[in-house]
Design a protein around this nucleic acid. Structure first.
Lengths: 333, 333
DNA sequence: CGGACTAATGTAACCGTTTACATTTTATTT
DNA sequence: AAATAAAATGTAAACGGTTACATTAGTCCG
């Protein structure tokens, strides 16, 4: 493998000139520039970025910590993140934690040992489920909740949930079931807050039994729905905290002979691609996953470069999408 | 930031001893080991992996070139790949190419410039759609087709497609539509081959009009299905080359009042998570995505380490999964 | 007790860049 | 043409580890 000295020798210039020709060509005469380029072509020189990064003490890589890459919301986010990273000359190290702190630690160690310059954290964290990331590590939280500290990109989960539940109430629903995420999940907490607010404003008492706990997988949605089927007085609508669980739930409901939306309305959250193709298509909240990915990368780069952030937290707007899985409460016209 | 020399000074040993204490502890006396560990703890030393990697001329990272991370089959594969990579101490650089050669080139350059040690290529390539990866770069093709050269993990696309079509024929179907991938996609070619073989063996003539071209997205499946709806004599079954297109197609068919499977059977390929929850659930071919991801990583590591491969190509078995989207041809009992 | 061998440790070169600083060349001004 | 400023180039010291080789300490045996 040829190195910069070989090129310098062949071009008849010093190594400094070769180095400059590559990274600061404006500081080199056209004459030298040409000699260097010829020499590079002749020996097929490729700069050793490992050496360059080492010298400049920068990995030009960021870690993205994601609970599960197979989740379509996350993969959309990451696709946008990667896109922006590539534009900026950064690599994205995929850190699928599968929810385990050990794996997360492993990746945090990578930035401590300089293999990456910063972290994009997709696991929502609050003061309760605490963040393991040391404060001196550049990090942006890209799925924050209301209590997230540090740089963050997020949506207003509470308001979005409230919008959805208000909509169901406006359709005449009074018994509205919830398929929640795990109880201590910050997103689940914020969204439940929005649900409660909407009920309160409509003067509907909150009933604990109407909350079924899931874990954001289709399978858990499928199971959670049984809880509603077996009630003496069934809810007439179900607010699921993500689309996957809603899709799972719809399967259960349909199998039990419950028609959607005639007998029961179902709503989701995220607007993953499949929600448009489910049967019936799903009324949901669209999160700007791509926008969030881009912004997270931009924000992280600022933190890495030490530039000041114009705002610590960036709350992006969501879109409320009405499809065919919702309708008037049975008995209302 | 403290370095190995600081640690050595504090521990009262040489840098070589510190280095050995970290990477070859068995070559260091217990006494020194303790002194080194104390010193490390005291100054909070973290080895600079950038320096280590530079010195050892290894990035301990691999690039995964994927046409689209948002495709659930790919994300499943990558999740397994990442899992194995982490076990082995390697990082996975996400290279979402979005099908463009430029992006692919950008990532190939990263291994040429030593930022990564090898590539896992998920874009199927054959002699037609050629591979841009120089032969001296360690690479394994993880979605190969029959004409793939070099180390590869793949399934027998032709046989799997044939199994599926044979099954449809056994149900009495004679007019079987196909929703294909892009005409020059190697997977599409192999699977179409299987379709033709099955027809030929059953003595059914091949009809070009029964092939609708898609691009493996749900949207394209949705459109392709119109081609069948508008035929004077409709096919009684549709063999889609992946699940997404099948799901899209089913939406069109249902909207046109065509019942599945009573009026028309539909089959998919890949067995993504949603195919179990679609309406009706989808008869499909399951690819061992996770197994493939693990094997691809193991294989690539062998290539990187220069170990001989026990076999150039590894063809993994698929599973044929019958669900509710297929039934007897109309008119047959 | 001395010689032979092994284990533990130290010294310093090396990996391939970048860049501060010194030097030389070229351009500009008087 | 000399003086000065600016541009281009070169020299060599980093960066933080690893490791070949040299050296020292420790063990065993006749």
């Amino acid at each position: 493998m040829s190195n910069i000295r070989d090129v310098a020798r062949l071009a008849g210039v010093s190594v400094a000139t070769v180095s400059r020709a590559l990274s600061n060509p404006e500081k080199v005469s056209d004459d030298s520039l040409e000699k260097v380029h010829n020499a590079i072509a002749q020996v097929g020189y490729r700069p050793n970025m490992l050496a360059r990064n080492f010298r400049s003490a920068r990995a030009y890589a960021v870690v993205v910590l994601v609970p599960d890459i197979a989740n379509p919301f996350y993969s959309l986010f990451i696709r946008a993140l990667e896109d922006r990273a590539q534009q900026k000359g950064y690599a994205v190290l995929l850190g699928d934690t599968r929810g385990t702190p050990e794996r997360e630690m492993d990746y945090i160690r990578r930035v401590e040992t300089r293999l990456a310059d910063g972290i994009v954290q997709l696991r929502p964290s609050s003061e309760k489920s605490q963040n393991n990331i040391p404060p001196d590590i550049p990090c942006v939280n890209a799925c924050g909740c209301e209590y997230t500290t540090g740089p963050a990109i997020r949506i207003d989960n509470r308001a979005a949930a409230k919008t959805m539940v208000n909509y169901l109430i406006s359709l005449g629903h009074r018994r509205i079931g919830v398929i929640s995420g795990l109880k201590d999940n910050p997103h689940a907490i914020d969204r439940l807050e929005g649900y409660k607010e909407a009920l309160a404003e409509a003067g509907i008492p909150f009933e604990k039994d109407l909350i079924a706990e899931g874990d954001f997988t289709m399978w858990s949605g499928l199971n959670a729905a049984f809880q509603f089927c077996n009630m003496k007085v069934r809810p007439t609508a179900v607010f699921s905290m993500n689309d996957e669980m809603a899709i799972g739930a719809m399967q259960t409901l349909k199998n039990q002979g419950i028609r959607i939306p005639e007998d029961m309305s179902v709503t989701g959250f995220d607007d993953i691609a499949y929600s448009k193709y489910s049967d019936p298509s799903l009324t949901t909240i669209s999160q700007p996953a791509e926008e969030m990915g881009k912004m997270a990368m931009d924000m992280l780069l600022k933190v890495i470069e030490g530039e000041p952030l114009s705002q610590r937290e960036c709350v992006l707007p969501t879109e409320f999408i009405i499809r065919k899985s919702t309708g008037p409460a049975p008995g209302k016209k």
